[in-house]
């Protein structure tokens, strides 16, 4: 153990981390510690700010709504992203390139531009209203639709990366061993894709938890999400202690999720894929 520490300490390579570490400390760790200290009372310990979260009648509702919308967005992006990523593994290189670009174009487009586009589409007398007679602008549904579109690349990319690593001959093997194609998928392909699913789910869910711009532009103040509540408390109410407490709760929820993902996803990915030593002849 001491030998290990010695070896690590001797290596000057670790100095390479200093710039990033300095930046993180200055702009993340110190403010984070500050808001934590404020949330538990600067001079005397108090749990008041945390108790308020659960008793003010607003925060819990908003937290619950945020979690619910994030979960729906996650399910929608998974339901759209999984078949899409699967298709990407099944088509030729040119078609795959096209599908990838189709995912990446919105990814490269400014979030603001996309949100304003959604306002145009979903507003009164917009195309959706004209066609279906529904106005989603200013509703939680509208927010969910726009967030799903904005976050879809974060689901598709890790999924594609995971699915493209799965050897399709395993499906042939399963069918040869007596599995109906559908069952072969569930018993072989799906478990092997779980690492990518977990990665995509965590990425989309945690990003959705902290989404600010989309709900602020497309939602209504009566249906605000956590990020809006935080902004309101810091910029309008100047309730830094309350905002700190709320921030801590969101942070803990996120960390718990990431830890869970590491356990589940890590277990899946550490198994690795059987190496294919040589290309099979095509006949």
């Amino acid at each position: 153990m001491t030998a290990w520490i010695k070896r690590q300490r001797l290596s000057p390579l670790w100095l390479l981390l200093l710039p990033a570490l300095g930046l993180l400390t200055a702009i993340l760790l110190i403010p984070l510690a500050q808001s934590f200290v404020r949330s538990i009372g600067e001079s005397a310990w108090t749990s008041q700010h945390y108790e308020n979260l659960f008793t003010d009648g607003v925060t819990l509702t908003v937290l619950w709504r945020t979690a619910w919308i994030s979960a729906v967005v996650t399910v929608v992006t998974l339901a759209c992203g999984y078949p899409y990523a699967y298709l990407m593994t099944r088509v030729g290189p040119r078609m795959r390139g096209l599908l990838l670009v189709l995912v990446l174009i919105p990814f490269w487009t400014s979030v603001m531009a996309r949100n304003f586009a959604w306002i145009l589409i979903l507003q009164r007398d917009g195309p959706v209203d004209d066609f279906f007679g529904v106005v989603f602008y200013g509703t939680a549904t509208g927010v969910t639709i726009a967030m799903s579109q904005v976050l879809l690349p974060f689901m598709v990319l890790p999924l594609y990366s995971a699915l493209s690593g799965i050897d399709r001959r395993l499906l042939l093997a399963a069918r040869g061993l007596g599995s109906h194609p559908v069952k072969a998928f569930w018993k072989v392909y799906w478990p092997l894709s779980r690492g990518g699913v977990v990665a995509g789910v965590i990425l989309v869910f945690t990003l959705a938890l902290g989404f600010y711009v989309t709900p602020a532009l497309l939602g209504s103040p009566q249906q605000s999400l956590v990020a809006q509540l935080l902004a309101q408390r810091t910029t309008q109410l100047l309730d830094f202690a309350g905002a700190g407490a709320l921030g801590m709760v969101v942070l803990v929820v996120t960390l718990v999720l990431v830890a869970w993902a590491n356990r589940v996803g890590g277990k899946v990915s550490s198994l690795g894929i059987v190496p294919t030593t040589s290309a099979k002849e095509e006949e």
Binding site: G176, P191, L192, V274
Partner: peptide, 20 residues
């Protein structure tokens, strides 16, 4: 008959063992 009803054992070059 589809493959899963032919009751054949199959050995592949890349083994095709289920890694999970």
């Amino acid at each position: 008959l589809p493959p899963h009803k032919r009751n054949l054992g199959m050995l592949f070059q890349n083994y095709a063992l289920f890694p999970h």
